[in-house]
Design a protein around this nucleic acid. Structure first.
Lengths: 208, 208
DNA sequence: CAGTTGTTGTGAAATAAATAACAGACGTAG
DNA sequence: CTACGTCTGTTATTTATTTCACAACAACTG
């Protein structure tokens, strides 16, 4: 079982390998990649150990090979099908960001309650009415959902998604969701993050 | 020194106390608040221990008093002044979200490079040209910044912010920033979060 | 007023995560 | 071919975080 934190770092390593390494570079040492990712070389090696990847002493890692290895762990055998609920500014930002990159993460449907949005294609993706969540999730075999609705609606939306078969939720509503244990939940509360940053920012200046 | 995780949970506890407790409720037991926050009662009590707050056995905690106590730790004596750089969809979403709530976090300036945005008031906040970062950050005594620019520009923007005196950064660009240790940095990479959710979603169904 | 029930605060134990340390492997220089 | 310096994989150690367990205490009951 690979830990939460390790998975997140692996995703970063792959991004660096694909986007931030000069295409001519074949080999890379752990301390090089570690420094780019702002982690210790020991941690990088340990993370690679978790996915069973081996480099060789004196030569380091093969860039393309490593990226592929990380991919085989992160991506699985087939692309993950993703839905997003709540096409406000945040929802649109995430959809258009994800559409812009080829990836094993496929945004295949979005949902909203506002009839000015439903039935249209927004940011390159069809927007359905929220009533259709069950229908579309099942039909499109969606397993992952992003929730960007107001906090009052989040729990109900999440329940419906889970009911329809979603097993992973990325929640941007600032409310803790109660879901069965078999569903993986990641919360990204903007306010909490900012309050945390503000707190530690204050600490690091000595101001009260 | 209060830990990272604890600060984040404290922020959640306060939100629950202020937004999700019936105003008539005076007392609250640890297991009640813990269940709302989806943490164990022991963890809640330990978090409160960290801020030196005491309830009483048999009566639990005083809702208003506890909220105030958490606030005195999280907020400090004066409001934190916040800037946001990058008024794309994501930037606008965050600004309008934060403007909508009274808070000790004051968004006082935003920045962009697009001359169709600069000089105007967007989502209730003045948008300056990125050239003015140093000037405005100093003048407005800004200590915290949110970075929502494309990944190519993020490092440069962060450097300028730090130079101008910012000590805490919330980074939404999918790139690790290299900053001096005295600056607190929190990364919120959307892709990494989604890849993580997709990974664990797959694990919890047994599909490969 | 003694007994019972249910709660808090906190030391101790358990678990998780990051760091350090090092044996063995590889490449290179001479 | 040998000696040396550098790097990897992995174990051991340290550090951080969470959970457990329980004494002390408040409220209620009869």
């Amino acid at each position: 079982m690979i830990s939460d934190r390790t998975i997140e770092r692996l995703s970063l390593y792959r991004w660096l390998l694909e986007m931030r390494i000069d295409p001519g570079t074949v080999n890379l040492f752990s301390h090089q990649l570690a420094s780019m990712a702002c982690v210790s070389p020991a941690q990088l090696r340990r993370d690679l150990m978790a996915i069973g990847y081996s480099g060789s002493p004196g030569k380091g890692y093969l860039v393309k090979d490593l990226a592929r290895s990380i991919g085989s762990v992160l991506d699985g055998s087939e692309p993950s099908r993703v839905a997003l609920v709540g096409m406000g500014n945040l929802g649109r930002a995430i959809v258009s960001f994800l559409r812009g990159r080829k990836s094993h993460l496929q945004i295949v449907a979005t949902f909203d309650t506002d009839c000015r949005k439903t039935g249209r294609v927004i940011s390159g993706c069809r927007c359905y009415n929220q009533d259709q969540i069950e229908e579309i999730v099942e039909k499109e075999k969606i397993s992952v959902a992003v929730v960007t609705v107001p906090s009052g609606a989040a729990q109900m939306v999440a329940d419906r998604l889970v009911n329809a078969g979603v097993t992973g939720i990325l929640n941007y509503a600032p409310v803790p969701l109660k879901l069965p244990d078999c569903v993986y939940l990641e919360n990204r509360d903007v306010t909490a993050a900012l309050e945390k940053v503000a707190y530690f920012a204050r600490k690091s200046t000595g101001r009260v």
